[in-house]
């Protein structure tokens, strides 16, 4: 059996004294596209921040390719970080740098490639996300969808094995959103990377995800784990079915109150 790309073990995390996630465990095999979903405030972003090593959990461990990102520090932690790419919700492109410079930056810092090699690599990445020709644009000149794609390109800069996408389609029109979904699948095809997508866009989930993990704010734990289409139809939890059917599931007899509770 191959090593899991990501394995989260008994993770308990939160802010200050508030616990957001309690005793969460799951594994992601290599090459899988996993979506983490849930209502707002259920801890999706918190889980993501712990997986990419920005926060230290209260308890538990997170292994990326068998290496704990929780217990490693300094250069060892940064070495782990170099093996995954993250595309943030707002893109998080450096506004003082052009698009090409944004993508070239990790290569300049972490590799010994020559300038020509880097330029070629940047073009390659931009071509992958259909932004070839925009090298010298500043992030402020790009549209929302382009910024997202540029962020994808930057997260791919060091050819990582794992990619984390935080709400890629948030704030985009359905067309751009759909094209991003296609892009994600495209990226998986070309790089064979493990992809973790945090989202609550149902279209995306059903289009891209091999597997969905759903978090719940009340139980602070995973309430559903499996292929999204299956969960939509056969989940034991009515809330999961309701969520995946966009709140229009006649089979789920839920009161309005519990829906709100679920979303809080």
């Amino acid at each position: 059996m191959t090593q899991n790309a990501i394995s989260v073990k008994n993770l308990t995390a939160g802010y200050g004294r508030r616990i957001v996630l309690e005793n969460i465990s799951f594994d992601v095999p290599p090459g899988q596209i996993l979506t983490i979903l849930g209502g707002s405030g259920c801890g999706k972003s918190t889980l993501l921040k712990h997986m990419i090593g920005l926060r230290t959990p209260f308890a538990g461990d997170i292994l990326l390719h068998g290496k704990s990102i929780v217990s490693s520090t300094g250069n060892r932690k940064r070495a782990i970080m170099r093996r995954f790419g993250v595309a943030y919700q707002g893109g998080a492109l450096f506004r003082s740098l052009s698009l090409a410079e944004n993508i070239a930056l990790p290569m300049e810092e972490h590799t010994k490639m020559s300038k020509e090699e880097i330029r070629e690599k940047v073009r390659e990445k931009l071509r992958l996300v259909n932004l070839d020709g925009y090298q010298d644009c500043m992030p402020s000149d790009l549209s929302g969808g382009m910024v997202k794609r540029a962020a994808f390109a930057r997260s791919l800069a060091l050819d990582p094995d794992i990619l984390f996408f935080d709400e890629p389609s948030a704030g985009l029109d359905p067309l751009s959103s759909a094209s991003l979904d296609r892009l994600i699948l495209d990226i998986r095809e070309k790089t064979a990377a493990t992809i973790v997508v945090v989202t609550h866009e149902l279209e995306s989930i059903f289009t891209i995800a091999d597997r969905a993990v759903m978090l719940d704010a009340d139980t602070k734990s995973i309430i559903a784990d499996g292929p999204p289409l299956e969960l939509k139809k056969h989940s034991a939890n009515p809330f999961v079915r309701l969520f995946l059917n966009a709140g229009r599931d006649p089979a789920a007899h839920l009161h309005e109150g519990s829906i709100h509770a679920g979303y809080q």
Partner: peptide, 17 residues
């Protein structure tokens, strides 16, 4: 502002200080 727009986080996850 960079912090608000997650640019600092992006730097960290890119393995920069």
């Amino acid at each position: 502002t960079m912090k608000v727009s997650e640019e600092i986080d992006a730097m960290r996850t890119m393995g920069f200080l």
